[in-house]
């Protein structure tokens, strides 16, 4: 199985890297932001907030071409908005998608996570008290 992992640089990326260590897959590729700060991803998007919708929409073609080029069986994101965009591109192209909400959201699912609920194959929270029918808790990184 090939998995495309997507997260913006910083805490989301730190969680994504730890998540990859837990998963059994044959091949992995990475999408991130902040190319100047780290060179550990295969593809890059510009960072944006989920509230700046136009900056996301503008990068949708890039996200689509990343997913087409990578040809993953599954896309996993730990956030934030750029990860959501890659997940959405995957959804448009018929890929399986998994959103793992950041462990930083202990009281309420992130706004990006709530959007992911609309289309992702599965949405996970890292806090048991936030699990609902559509959002599952399967464990956490800390």
């Amino acid at each position: 199985m090939k998995v495309l992992f997507a997260a913006s640089f910083g805490g989301h990326w730190a969680q994504l890297k730890r998540l990859t260590e837990l998963l059994a897959c044959d091949e992995r590729e990475f999408v991130s932001t902040a190319r100047e700060q780290h060179q550990s991803a295969d593809y890059y998007l510009d960072d944006f907030s989920v509230r700046e919708l136009w900056r996301g929409v503008r990068q949708l073609p890039r996200a689509l071409s990343i997913v087409r080029k990578s040809r993953p069986d599954l896309i996993i994101s730990t956030g934030a908005a750029p990860g959501l965009l890659v997940l959405f591109a995957g959804f448009l192209l018929g890929k399986k998608t998994l959103w793992v909400d950041s462990i930083a959201n202990s009281r309420r699912l992130s706004l990006s996570g709530r959007v992911a609920k609309l289309f992702a194959s599965q949405v996970l929270t890292q806090w048991p008290e936030l699990a609902t029918g559509r959002v599952r808790y399967l464990g956490r990184l800390l």
């Binding site: 199985m1 730890r18 998540l19 260590e21 837990l22 998963l23 059994a24 897959c25 599954l74 399986k96 998994l98 194959s121 599965q122 599952r136 399967l138 464990g139 956490r140 990184l141 800390l142």
Partner: peptide, 20 residues
């Protein structure tokens, strides 16, 4: 504690991915 949390999480995640 962190190792234990992650081992349990990993097991569940891998099972989930097979079902998706």
């Amino acid at each position: 504690r962190i190792r234990d949390e992650r081992r349990a999480f990993g097991k569940q995640l891998n099972a989930l991915i097979q079902q998706l």
